[in-house]
Design a protein around this nucleic acid. Structure first.
Lengths: 218, 218
DNA sequence: TAGATTGTTAATCGATTAACAATC
DNA sequence: TAGATTGTTAATCGATTAACAATC
């Protein structure tokens, strides 16, 4: 079989796909059946050409004059992201952040469903969060293999992150969504996506500091 | 007074500053007193020139051969971000995510301290989270003015976000850290920084989907 | 047909990286 | 002095935007 060799999609494009997907699903609920790039671009404040390229990169195609068939496009994007059959994931870290992630129902529609909770802190093990028992890290490898789980969410404090990350990689998890403020280096076989709220807060802080402060006047 | 006109710092640079800051604080705790760009670059997997430019953009300067004085550099970055005297912030949304944000102590060191909690849902008002009473949105404007609060954290469900955002802007909040999956358009006087976990998850999902799946073999 | 929209190629823009002179 | 490091200018790279032909 000759596989068509497309460019790999860029990270910025990839990050925009969920925005399109969310709009498409909202519009579908309203009964709309066709969309054009201009509709999407206007709603998101993007350039229409950019939208067209993003959709093309995800494998979607439309028809000149008509646009894209909404349902087909939605399915194409969801399929491209692997979000149509949510993967099972393990949560490591049962603190407040872990609990919040567990409580958020939206992830099921985003390709991820948390099926078990672990914590390296013996003080947390044995308790339960969101109706799920908190298991010791020692059980991670065994369960990951038995359940064929590939995805892990890491939400432990910074000082426990490196070791927990290593344990997750050794357990065979291939993707780690890392909420700890620590860079994980787990080799090329493990994909790590880092979420760092401080980075986002820095943008806000600096912009706010630049804004004229009304209270400056006495 | 003639103000030197520097380029505005780029968003990518801005987002890297917290990473430097975190390292600097860790190294300072270890007693180190000098750092070079190469140290920082190596620890983060960045290009040394990029680090040098980032630091320069934040107003830091070092000495050839010696490097940067650690404490001075840390103070410079923290000052540039306005993180040395944390601003007081209101949290709008007392659900699981709001509670997790409230419980996270790290924000105080990142320029933000949550001082009151609001919720548009009457069912939540009157309760308390993290030891703080949940107040009705109607009290937002009055309190913001009295306490001179400029910053808000929006963590309500999607369908309540637009209205809550509007209320926050009307109350005079100038910066909104938006965790709702909704684009807020509140005019040029309000800085909105959007955090969308689905965007991050998309990157992970797609990379994971591209990885060879060991379970493919039967 | 005429007009709107896609798909694609070219131009622009901005961020990253490389090269190198200045400095302690 | 020699060597390491900063600061800055130039080159590269990649993403965004513009232009336009192809299409229904």
């Amino acid at each position: 079989m000759i596989a068509a060799m497309h460019h790999p999609i860029s990270v910025p494009s990839l990050r925009r796909l969920p925005l399109y997907l969310r709009l498409l699903e909202a519009w579908r609920a309203e009964g709309r059946e066709q969309v054009s790039c201009t509709h999407l671009a206007d709603a998101l404040g993007f350039d229409p050409t950019q939208v067209r390229k993003d959709l093309a990169a995800a494998g979607a195609s439309g028809r000149p004059k008509v646009g894209y068939e909404l349902k087909t496009l939605r399915d194409c994007l969801a399929g491209f992201l692997g979000w149509d059959n949510p993967g099972e994931a393990f949560l490591v870290g049962a603190g407040p952040l872990g609990q919040a992630l567990l409580a958020y129902e939206g992830f099921a529609a985003r390709g991820m469903s948390i099926v078990a909770v672990f914590d390296p802190d013996p003080g947390r093990v044995g308790g339960s969060v969101g109706g799920k028992p908190v298991l010791p890290l020692a059980k991670l490898a065994n369960l990951a293999a038995r359940m064929h789980v590939r995805l892990g969410v890491l939400a432990v404090p910074a000082d426990a992150a490196a070791e927990a990350g290593r344990a997750m990689a050794e357990a065979g998890l291939q993707g780690i969504w890392n909420f700890a403020p620590v860079r994980l280096d787990l080799g090329p076989l493990v994909v790590v996506e880092h979420v760092d709220l401080a980075q986002s807060l820095a943008v806000l802080s600096h912009r706010l500091a630049e804004l004229p402060q009304p209270s400056e006047i006495t």
